[in-house]
């Protein structure tokens, strides 16, 4: 491999990993706070992407809007969607005993995922199945290295969101409560933290992040009703690999998988989609709790 190509492969891997990490963060936050493995996470990504597409498509003839702006509009809406989803489907589960809760959460969120996919499929009849926005800004070219502008913007936004999340957790009172609930739910309850409200907030943030990732997909590639579950699986991989409850772990896990897919895609593309699972198994063999698991 030539040197510039190597650099390009690495850059691509990191950019890819960053976007993976974004959606995986949401999943990790939800799991860390509420103990729920939200298998509908990928569906929210898909629906978020669809929302961005529908807005873009509707406004296109009247007013050509930069889809990134639409992402910023859609994300807060999905914070609300997350709150509603949590209240409607997840809260009833938290009444149950802990060991039953995880299994129930998996079943309920899986069921929700299938329903959401079906509804999206049904709603797609009469229009196109796959949705993508026509938006292109020429790449930044440095020598022989092409930096796709879309991906740079996305990576930048991911960094901003991660920093924002960090500030939220470290420097706000609610953020402190979120950390407390993540680390010891019983303990948090005992000191008067309303864990129900914190769960809802975690779901809201997580879902908003998923919607942002969905917006990125619709710009960089496409979204279709059937993309949700395979993506959820990949994010689960990243979350488990990084160590449940660790954000640094998720970031690192995302980048590792991004790099893995990037390198394998270059030499053996047929294996590029399984690399996530192979890396997961490898990491867990060395560190059973994940990279930074507790």
């Amino acid at each position: 491999m030539e040197f510039t190509t190597l650099v390009q492969v690495i850059i691509n891997g990191v950019l890819l990993g960053g976007v993976y990490a974004l959606a995986a963060f949401g999943l990790s936050l939800i799991f860390g706070v509420s103990g729920v493995l939200n298998l509908a996470h990928g569906e929210f990504l898909m629906v978020g992407g669809m929302a961005v597409f529908l807005l873009f498509d509707a406004l296109q003839n009247v007013w050509y809007v930069n889809p990134f702006i639409l992402v910023a509009v859609v994300a807060p809406l999905f914070f609300l969607v997350g709150l509603v989803f949590e209240k409607a489907l997840i809260q009833p589960l938290t009444q149950r005993k802990e060991h039953v809760r995880l299994a129930s959460a998996v079943l309920v969120t899986l069921g929700a995922a299938l329903v959401i996919e079906d509804v999206a499929d049904f709603a797609s009849r009469g229009s196109q199945y796959e949705k993508s926005v026509d938006f292109f800004i020429p790449s930044l070219v440095i020598g022989e290295i092409y930096l796709e502008t879309n991906k740079l913007v996305m990576f930048g936004l991911v960094l901003i969101l991660i920093v924002a999340l960090f500030i939220f957790l470290r420097f706000t009172y609610v953020g402190l409560a979120v950390q407390a609930v993540t680390q010891n739910r019983r303990g948090a309850l005992l000191v008067g933290v309303n864990t129900t409200r914190i769960n809802a907030i975690a779901f809201g943030i997580g879902t908003a992040l998923a919607a942002v990732a969905g917006g990125f997909e619709v710009i960089n590639s496409m979204v279709a009703p059937n993309i949700g579950l395979p993506l959820t699986l990949k994010y689960l991989c990243i979350v488990v690999m990084g160590g449940l409850g660790s954000f640094l772990g998720v970031a690192l896990g995302g980048v590792i998988i991004g790099l893995g897919e990037s390198f394998l895609g270059f030499f053996y593309p047929a294996w590029s989609q399984t690399v996530a699972y192979l890396l997961l198994v490898t990491v867990l063999l060395i560190r059973p709790k994940g990279l930074f698991g507790k």
Binding site: L176, Q183, N184, R186, G187, A188, K294
Partner: peptide, 8 residues
């Protein structure tokens, strides 16, 4: 069996 917030 104490339940502190270990990471804090």
């Amino acid at each position: 069996h104490v339940r502190p917030f270990l990471g804090l």
